[in-house]
Design a protein around this nucleic acid. Structure first.
Ligand SMILES: Nc1ncnc2c1ncn2[C@@H]1O[C@H](COP(=O)(O)OP(=O)(O)OP(=O)(O)O)[C@@H](O)[C@H]1O
Length: 850
DNA sequence: CATGTCGTCCTTTTT
DNA sequence: GGACGACATG
């Protein structure tokens, strides 16, 4: 398999090289000249080396060009590789690891490789297998910043002075954090539930945490200052609130034995700083550190790398400032531009400028876009492959027709060529665009998956199940406990919960904090004299409850205790089944409106939780018990959007945001919604920096395409079920057509009829070689827009249910629509992704630890 | 205490 | 058009 892939690649390379040497470009003269000039200057590797010389080369530099080779072979120390899109940084990273192992004799287990997604880590490991062998590939540590940090914290985090967390800590995502913020605003500051705005506050907290080296021990006022220093100030009227909130928020997390996402990094940095023995351990543990996508590292992440690379300062970072697209969540382009140079000794910089991925036409289009940013990097990208008419700009009447066009075009493309569906990607700016697109793909019967669709894990029933597991693993987890203490309903209503909270405040404090509700109920934190008090709960009087309420609470406590017992030697999946059995959750779900479908999602989770952790790396992970449970939960928490890719495999077109497309490549790429205000995205408070980032994002999107690129826009677009709004094509398209029409055919609008009527229902085929036009207008006949019906979906279903009851006299089960699942099963294609609940992504592979 | 219905908010990108 | 809170009813 791997052999065949390599062979194919080699053949492909040969073909391209031959084409290059013959100069038989399909492109017109100026493009070829440009391409040849660049290529001859930079690609001596191909021309200068004979086959025999190549064959003698060590495996880790075979097939690399001079610049790539130089980077791979760079002396151990601080190395920075500035790599344009498609310039082969993945190859370089892999080559570097192999080089370190083979030539520098670095033990594999001393190598730490930070990737942007856990999926990328897994792929890296797989590709390394060929070069350094199965065992060595397993011994390398590879994962995201967050995964690696979480692993470090689980092992050694307890040692951080005053951290107040145990190794069983829960990882809070943005939603969980928002719950904490909300409860502080409402319960501590007396804001009304309606007016409280936990969202912005949580964002500021997150931004603040990622712009300091670490936040452990810092107070709200210091975080406020950090935001100002980082030139990311928050509105004056919110500052006071922020300062108060921050400290309470931190207390809330500590009380719940939880870290938020930013804490994972922050606490790890603090750990290395404050615990010399831990630092010494990790300095020895990893002697070589490699970081992919370095342009998107935050201050905290940078600091983590700095500390881990001590004492040798052996770091290999790869990135491209032009592809920096995560400034909004604290990434600092300066890290790759200037900071690295300043902080590390004798930095060697290598530049990779030959783009092997895309045709010259696509590269030109990309360059036309990036030159619109204020600080394009000095990299002058040169395409290795000559291009033809590979880029098209297509205007549709509205977003539905745009989607229909893309779906039909994709289908025709695959039918008429040897491309597979998985060679096609549709990129967009916002997740909300996915819906129309997916509907069109379903109608057209085109198999597809929406990458980065986290809806499975945001389903109520899935969150509930996860909450139960989290409490078993970490009973202090307040957010989870509040979520399920009365789900399914068990007689613990709001007033009881309020009374319980009041009771908590009367209990003895620990480290200045009252016990969390879980500590009190499940870990006996109310006991003044644990040895002599064997009851599960104090008397109703002491708790301030009625006898009846106390009984309800006691039942819950006994339930959770029993689950904790089960957990000791059950897989997470078996534990879930036990939870369901004891809680009656199945009945609850099945009784609900769309019960059958929802129950299927729960089943899916159980299956996921039963799977043994794959790629057990060097850590032998028990399949049962609390450690396995913790591993499962951590995997779920640290899922990246890339991992939500459909793991059932199969040949499917990919729909995703441009953000999610980073680092990927596809033969044919559609970008949907290239309109002013959407790409680049504009919101009212945007700075020039924000706009620059939008330009770079489009650049990233464009450079995903290998052979064909279609930039689509609509004349009007519907936003949130509002009435359609007029849309204009993005000015970035003007830059592209200005560049491309210089050497190509002038713009000439063409109206194409796709159509969904029985005969005409097909794509235009305009992507086939030579037919792509620079600019075209399409009209697609659509099925009548979903019939105007009375009332909301829910109303209609309720009505139909009543009707059935009247006629048949029986209760009818008419499931409420599960948007995606049902849409898929309704489509007759059967080839589409989700006739049954979407197969959720597997949990993350564990990276090796000690 | 549980459940159903109505109104109001938000909607960029994600580890 | 969906998620969640407020409010009314059993
Ligand atoms: N020396 C080479 N010769 C031929 N093809 C190459 C060479 N180096 C890389 N490639 C090909 O170029 C394509 C892009 O490589 P890769 O995915 O590593 O790009 P990248 O630098 O990570 O790009 P990006 O920054 O856009 O993610 C791949 O298909 C790869 O096989």
């Amino acid at each position: 398999m791997a052999h065949r892939a390599r062979l194919a690649r080699a053949l492909d390379g040969t073909r391209r090289r031959a084409a290059f040497e013959r100069g038989d470009a399909r492109a017109s003269g100026s493009v070829v000249r440009r391409w040849r000039t660049g290529a001859t200057a930079r690609d001596d590797a191909w021309g200068g080396r004979g086959v025999s010389a190549e064959a003698l080369e060590p495996v880790h530099v075979r097939g690399l060009n001079d610049a790539q080779r130089a980077a791979v072979l760079a002396p151990v120390g601080a190395t920075r590789v500035l790599a344009g899109p498609g310039s082969g940084k993945t190859h370089v990273l892999i080559g570097r690891v192999a080089h370190l192992i083979h030539e520098e004799k670095t033990p594999p287990r001393e190598i730490l490789c930070i990737t942007f997604t856990n999926k990328a880590a897994k792929e890296l490991r797989e590709r390394l297998r060929d070069k350094i062998g199965e065992v060595a590939a397993k011994e390398i540590t590879a994962g995201t910043f967050h995964s690696v940090a979480a692993r470090m914290l689980r092992r050694h985090g307890e040692r951080i002075p005053g951290i107040g967390r145990t190794g069983e800590f829960t990882i809070y995502d943005a939603d969980d954090s928002k719950q904490i913020v909300q409860s502080v605003l409402v319960n501590k500051f007396g804001e009304s539930k309606k007016t409280a705005q936990p969202g912005p506050m949580r964002n500021w907290i997150s931004t603040a945490k990622s712009c300091v080296k670490h936040s452990v021990g810092l107070r709200g006022s210091q975080m406020l200052r950090a935001l100002e220093d980082a030139k990311k100030p928050i509105p004056p009227m919110s500052q006071q609130r922020f300062v108060e909130l921050y400290d309470e928020y931190e207390d809330g997390l500590r009380q719940a034995n939880a870290f938020d996402f930013d804490d994972l990094l922050s606490a790890t940095v603090a750990m290395l700083e404050m615990c010399p023995d831990v630092r010494a351990y990790y300095e020895r543990r990893w002697s070589q550190v490699l970081v992919d996508e370095f342009q998107d590292t935050s201050t905290t992440q940078y600091e983590l790398i700095r500390k881990l690379s001590q004492p040798q300062g052996s770091v290999f970072v790869v990135g491209d400032a032009d592809q920096a697209i995560y400034g909004w969540r604290g990434a600092e382009v300066a890290n790759i531009r200037t900071q690295f140079d300043q902080d590390f000794k004798e930095v060697q910089t290598h530049m990779l400028t030959t783009n092997y991925r895309s045709t010259s036409t696509i590269v030109e289009a990309a360059q036309a876009v990036i030159k619109e940013s204020s600080f394009p990097s000095p990299l002058d990208l040169v395409a290795h492959t000559p291009g033809g008419r590979d880029v098209a700009i297509v205007e549709a009447n509205d977003d539905r027709e745009e989607a229909e066009f893309i779906a039909l075009e994709a289908r025709k493309l695959v039918q008429d060529s040897d491309l597979r569906y998985s060679d096609v990607a549709v990129l967009y700016r916002t997740n909300s665009q996915a819906r129309v697109l997916e509907e069109a793909f379903i109608r057209a019967g085109v198999p597809h998956t929406v990458v980065g669709d986290t809806s499975f894990y945001s389903r109520k029933e899935i969150k509930d199940m996860i909450a139960y597991l989290r409490i078993v693993s970490n009973s202090s987890d307040t957010v989870s406990l509040n979520r399920i203490i009365n789900t399914p309903t068990r007689g613990i209503g709001n007033s009881t919960i309020e009374k319980l909270n009041a009771w908590l405040k009367t209990l003895p404090k620990k480290d200045g904090l009252s016990p969390s509700i879980g500590d009190a109920l499940l870990r006996g934190a109310w006991k003044t004299n644990p040895g002599e008090q064997s009851e599960l709960l104090p008397s109703a009087d002491e708790m301030g409850l009625t006898a009846r309420a106390r009984t309800a609470v006691l039942n819950f406590v006994e339930l959770m205790r029993a689950c904790q017992q089960t957990a000791m030697n059950a897989t997470p999946g078996e534990l879930l089944e036990d939870v369901i059995k004891r809680t009656g959750y199945e009945t609850m779900v099945l009784d609900a409106d769309d019960g059958v479908d929802r129950w299927a999602f729960v089943q899916e989770l159980i299956n996921l939780a039963k799977e043994p952790p794959r790629d057990v790396d060097e850590t032998i992970q028990d399949r049962v018990g609390l450690e396995a449970l913790g591993a499962f939960l951590e995997g779920v928490s640290l899922l990246t959007s890339a991992e939500t890719d459909d793991v059932t495999g199969g040949d499917k077109a990919k729909l995703m945001t441009m953000h999610a497309s980073k680092g990927l490549e596809f033969d044919t790429v559609f970008i949907a919604g290239v309109e002013d205000g959407l790409i680049p995205f504009i919101r009212n408070g945007d700075s020039d920096d924000d706009q620059d980032e939008e330009v770079r994002l489009f650049y990233v999107g464009i450079t995903r395409a290998k052979r064909k690129l279609m930039l689509c826009h609509a004349r009007e677009r519907r936003r949130f079920g509002q009435s359609p709004q007029a849309a204009r094509r993005s000015f970035l398209l003007d830059s592209i057509s200005a560049t491309l029409t210089g050497t190509k055919k002038p713009e000439r609008p063409v109206t194409l009829h796709g159509g969904v009527s029985a005969r005409a229902r097909n794509g235009t085929g305009m992507l086939e070689k030579g037919k792509a036009d620079w600019s075209a207008r399409v009209t697609v006949d659509l099925p009548p827009p979903t019939r105007k019906r009375e009332g909301t979906t829910r109303d209609r279903i309720v009505k139909s249910r009543d009707l059935i009851k009247k006629v048949t006299g029986a209760d009818a089960v008419v499931p409420l629509p599960l948007r995606k699942a049902q849409a898929a099963s309704e489509s007759s294609s059967g080839s589409s992704a989700r006739a049954k609940p979407k197969r959720a992504a597997r949990h993350v592979k564990k990276s090796p630890d000690e």
